[in-house]
């Protein structure tokens, strides 16, 4: 893990990148990194995460500033700008059931080629997918998801990048941390190696490339 400053965050991103993010309605999304992405004048991003934010902003500033051309999420209803851009044909949205989305991300980070889920059988979610019957029950074959970069919000990181999340801000973060080529963490606190009890580490530091200290500190 490399500790970086805020000036180093923007240059980690490029136009057209796929970005996987932690967070649920903004809780657990790294707000400082989202702001740095807006400041970096990026375009044509693909975002992969649970939702497009709000009531807590989450990734909504990137949607508002039209930096996103494709979004894979389970829910966009709390951020009306997402629906408007989708209806206007400016934003390509793929909706995936939440349990399917998180499992696709888990597969992407776990070396798995996909999984079978009963969720979505007989609905529009099935369109274009393979249905398989196992043990008399119907399932859909769902495929893994990976991204160029993952953005993570942690409560605490040590100097090796071991992470602890806070309460329900954990959500997608530990899974997203496994499914991207580069993993960037915004931490509220950076402590010395050894200060986090090994039993309490939620994401092992070997998965983390960069940590930036959250600005409110």
């Amino acid at each position: 893990m490399k500790r970086i400053g805020w000036a180093d965050v923007g240059p980690l991103f490029r136009d057209g990148m796929s970005v996987m993010f932690g967070g649920f309605l903004g809780t657990g999304t790294p707000a400082g990194i989202v702001q740095a992405m807006c400041d970096a004048d990026l375009h044509q991003l693909t975002l992969i995460g649970n939702d497009s934010g709000l009531p807590v902003p989450g990734v909504s500033p990137l949607i508002a500033e039209r930096r996103v051309s494709r979004l894979i999420a389970s829910h966009i209803g709390t951020n009306p700008a997402t629906g408007k851009q989708m209806m206007a044909g400016e934003l390509d949205v793929e909706l995936s059931p939440q349990g399917t989305l998180i499992e696709r991300i888990r597969c992407g980070g776990s070396g798995l080629g996909g999984f079978l889920t009963p969720t979505g059988v007989g609905t529009v979610v099935e369109e274009g997918k393979t249905r398989m019957t196992v043990g008399g029950r119907d399932y859909l074959l769902e495929l893994p998801l990976r991204a160029d970069i993952a953005i993570i919000k942690a409560k605490r990181a040590d100097r090796l990048g071991n992470l602890v999340y806070d309460r329900a801000a954990r959500n997608f973060n530990p899974l997203v941390a496994m499914a991207a080529d580069v993993v960037l963490v915004e931490a509220d606190e950076i402590v010395e190696t050894g200060e986090i009890d090994p039993d309490l580490v939620m994401t092992p530091g070997v998965l983390v490339d960069y940590v930036v200290l959250a600005r409110s500190n």
């Binding site: 939702d51 999420a73 389970s74 829910h75 966009i76 209803g77 709390t78 629906g83 989708m86 909706l95 059931p97 939440q98 349990g99 399917t100 009963p118 969720t119 979505g120 059988v121 609905t123 979610v125």
Partner: peptide, 13 residues
């Protein structure tokens, strides 16, 4: 078109 969130998984599982 708000998205299904967790609803499909919940009623299936």
């Amino acid at each position: 078109v708000p998205g299904m969130g967790g609803a499909m998984d919940l009623v299936t599982g």
